[in-house]
């Protein structure tokens, strides 16, 4: 029976550490973000705001006016000068996966996080 050489142990330890690091790295990617509000304008990178922070955000771009409110863990579009006003009429959202979309102004607001809604998606 051949005994393992010292080098083998080092290699094994190294590989296990390597696997451990990759494991942790991937775990981070699996974990969901805390309850956050993702705000996206057209194809720009999104910005994230915590839902438990009461704030009013001015998302206006040039002549396109959109004012978003985050209040008591609820998010709603206070004001918009878009043609259809669907974003304002959408009212309050608070559960993961719920969204407010202002298509004319290409703005989307999506709630991310761990508070699971009852459904995975809405067919409409």
């Amino acid at each position: 029976m051949n005994m393992m050489k010292r080098g083998d142990y080092i290699l094994i330890i190294f590989l296990l550490l390597f696997a451990g690091v990759l494991f942790l790295h991937n775990m981070n990617n699996i974990q969901e973000k805390g309850t956050m509000v993702e705000i996206r304008f057209a194809d720009e990178d999104p910005i994230y705001v915590s839902i438990d922070q009461n704030t009013t955000l001015d998302l206006s771009h040039g002549d396109l006016v959109n004012i978003l409110c985050i209040e008591d863990e609820k998010v709603y579009m206070l004001e918009s000068n878009c043609r259809d006003q669907l974003c304002v009429r959408r009212g309050e959202i608070s559960l993961e996966g719920e969204s407010i979309v202002c298509l004319p102004h290409r703005i989307s607001i999506v709630i991310l996080g761990t508070d699971k809604g009852d459904i995975d998606a809405l067919s409409q």
Binding site: L11, F23, N29, I30, E38, D43, S108
Partner: peptide, 27 residues
Amino acid sequence: IFSILILTSFLLVSCVDSHRSMKEVVF
């Protein structure tokens, strides 16, 4: 033992990678 350990390490890594989820929103 050495081979088994290597194999396990790689399985561990690939197994976790296959669980990786991602979400993307586009207009």
